[in-house]
Amino acid sequence: MKKILTSFVLALSLVTISGFDTSLSTNTSSLQTKQNTLTIMSKAEAAEISEGVAAPDFTFTDLATGKVMNLSDLRDMPVYLNFWATWCPPCVRELPHIQAKYEQYKDKIHFLAISLDGEQAAPAEFIPAKGYTFPVGYGNEREISRAYNVEAIPMSFIIDTNGVVKAKIVGSMDDTDLERFLQKGL
């Protein structure tokens, strides 16, 4: 009885301690990153990213062109920003609707679907395989989801030309929902 208890507690605490140790060290490193991009992170940590809040800027690679860009580069038109991942069934189901709306509205709204996959290869292979042509980006998945406080995906935003969030929605949208959502940016 004693042995079993001790070994169990030992095992449990080992896992926890090792984990917390790394989590502490990563926290410090993410702190350093935060200082480099102070405006972004401090704003993001302070409030929920919702209507009326400045959309946190972030860097991403456009998967089609390989170009490294910032969200803030897209100020000439409103932005429809979508967070998704290949492992997320509702997100993937939304993509055909995004493609359809992209073809309809690409001259009026920037479309940007940011993949929160663990690795860039996942969306980079999937998107062309499906024949999607709307812009898909990949960046520092952890920092972006922290900045936008992404607790569930798909999550979509409409961002106006001043970089301010005009609308936000959590959950998968069909054609009608997406149309209604995009109207808020038009």
């Binding site: 896992v15 926890t16 984990g19 790394t22 989590s23 990563t26 926290n27 952890r142 989801s145 607790e151």
Partner: peptide, 14 residues
Amino acid sequence: QGRIYRGPLKSVCV
């Protein structure tokens, strides 16, 4: 906060 912890420990299964 309603925020899910996403540190490195999260890749360990309990």
